[in-house]
């Protein structure tokens, strides 16, 4: 029970931190007289959305749309249960890496359902774009997840952390780490890979969402981004290992660093069109990830 509470508290705090950092770094935030005051803007946005009146489109499929909206934060939280975010993970499953992958893929359904349900063209285009993006990022993502599991000889997140006692997997398998970071951006449709929510389609998937619906969707996106960043820590950055601070403190600190990098990338990198990302993903990321897996396999055979 205490691990659930710690997990929820750390996850929410980090997700809010990401939203606050984005508010500070966003063009409106950077242009404000006191940019750091903008850190409270997500709170004001929450209050605004909670009191906003719902806008309706003609003939929406409300059931499917609500199912999609609610699925997004739920799968983010479920994916996070195997991540040791606040010390112990909520559940250190024997197939933890596969569990994370399966829950994160449910985000595909969430986005497409939300896009479909509104009966409006821009959300629909956004939903289909995310499916195409999913095809582009999922295979490199799976190979990137496989590398640490192969290096540790286990799918259990706890054992992957234990295998990094001497040297972090980010050092021994840097390509897999880089591919993972790209796929983290893609799975949270964030920054350069945020075309499903692109400005060219009036905001894409959540374009017609208003009030609490929009709040749950956007909060779910920040939760997904946070969980994606948090998973990089046990997989590649040695989990809770570190000097001075105890293990329960190092995990959130490292997660915050990865998260800050991802949030910062949004303002620094241009949005990539989904079809070009597909070409990049399949022609560059998959071969690179496979070569990395070959390298790790040789390392494992030679080392064991």
């Amino acid at each position: 029970m205490s691990s659930v509470l710690a997990f929820a508290a750390v996850l929410l705090a980090l997700a809010y931190g990401a939203a606050a950092l984005r508010a500070v770094l966003s063009p409106e935030g950077a242009g404000a007289a006191r940019p750091w005051r903008e850190a409270a803007r997500p709170l004001r946005e929450v209050a605004r959305l909670l009191t906003q009146r719902r806008r309706r489109t003609p003939l929406p499929d409300t059931t499917l749309m609500r199912a999609g909206i609610v699925t997004l934060p739920v799968v983010a939280a479920l994916a996070g249960v195997v991540v040791p975010l606040g010390g112990e993970p909520v559940a250190d499953l024997g197939v933890g890496v596969v569990w994370f992958n399966a829950m994160e893929v449910c985000g595909w359904a969430a986005l497409w359902l939300t896009g479909w349900g509104a009966n409006s063209v821009y959300p629909l285009v956004g939903g289909y774009r995310f499916l195409a993006q999913g095809i582009a990022y999922e295979l490199p993502h799976m190979f990137a997840l496989m590398a640490p599991a192969l290096g540790a000889g286990s799918l259990r997140v706890g054992e992957i952390v234990a295998a990094q006692e001497r040297v972090w997997f980010a050092v021994t398998m840097p390509v897999a780490f880089a591919v993972y970071l790209v796929s983290a951006l893609a799975m949270a449709f964030w920054g350069p890979l945020g075309q499903p929510l692109g400005a060219d389609v009036a905001g894409g998937v959540p374009a017609e969402l208003s009030g609490p619906d929009r709040l749950v969707f956007l909060a779910g996106r920040y939760l997904l981004l946070t969980v994606a960043a948090a998973m990089a820590v046990p997989l590649f950055l040695g989990g809770g290992a570190g000097p001075l601070l105890p293990a329960w403190a190092w995990s959130p600190v490292k997660t915050a660093a990865v998260l800050a990098l991802l949030v910062w990338a949004r303002g620094r990198l241009p949005v990539v069109r989904v079809d070009r990302f597909l070409a990049f993903g399949w022609l560059a990321l998959i071969p690179l990830a496979l070569l990395q897996l070959l390298g790790v396999s040789v390392m494992v055979v030679a080392g064991g």
Binding site: V98, N101, A102, V105, C106, W108, A109, L131, G134, E138
Partner: peptide, 8 residues
């Protein structure tokens, strides 16, 4: 995992 991807 596979069913969600496949059905989408």
């Amino acid at each position: 995992l596979m069913m969600v991807m496949e059905m989408m």
